[in-house]
């Protein structure tokens, strides 16, 4: 038996570990309690999700690492990560997961939590504002393509006004600051 100072098997290292006691142990339960999070715990880190992901090669945190971080309680790192917003929502990870973890849906849950905490990236907020202001993300313009296809310049029956009104009353409106 030895005291801390004289522990013979302890090498001096430059390791600066993440102190688990500084993490949020409730984060995994928070995610688990969300509609798609129930099977979060089933993850055994096989990395099938990362193998399936078409974009993870560009990510610092791969999909399996995001799940791992949720289980560990790395709430701030997950909710402020750029990865959850870059997810293409192709659902390949979720389709292939051998343990039934709803990876894409969990990433949606993370985005919802991040949004509530004001952690939505500026470019996403910009899209939200555009939706709110114009009622649509893409302006249909009366350009040559419609003409070539023999279509009338304006989309018949398209009226973004009701959409704008609805969006103002929704969470999107609140999040981008233009709603109630």
């Amino acid at each position: 038996m030895s005291e801390a100072g004289e522990h013979s098997t302890t090498p001096v290292t430059l390791v600066d570990p993440i102190d688990i006691s500084t993490l949020d142990p409730h984060f995994r339960n928070e995610i688990r309690s969300m509609p798609n999070g129930d099977d979060l715990y089933a993850c055994f880190a096989c990395t099938t999700c990362t193998a399936a992901c078409p974009i993870a090669c560009q990510w610092t945190y791969k999909p399996h690492q995001l799940i791992r971080m949720i289980l560990l309680g790395m709430r701030n790192e997950v909710l402020s990560s750029k990865e959850i917003w870059e997810c293409l929502t192709c659902f390949q990870c979720q389709e292939r997961c051998p343990q039934g973890v709803r990876v894409t849906d969990i990433i949606f849950d993370c985005k919802n939590l991040a949004a509530e905490e004001g952690l939505v990236p500026e470019n996403i907020l910009g899209l939200g504002r555009q939706l709110l202001e114009s009622g649509q993300l893409y302006q249909v313009t009366a350009d040559w393509e419609r003409e070539d296809l023999g279509l009338e310049p304006e989309v018949p029956g398209l009226d973004p006004e009701p959409m704008k009104a609805i969006l103002h009353g929704t969470r999107t409106g609140r999040l981008v600051g233009g709603g109630d």
Partner: peptide, 20 residues
């Protein structure tokens, strides 16, 4: 075990240091 909330860490032990 995973369902019961047991944590699993794939990796190895760097060091074990007794505290007071």
């Amino acid at each position: 075990a995973r369902r019961a909330g047991v944590g699993f860490i794939r990796g190895r032990v760097s060091r074990v240091v007794p505290r007071d």
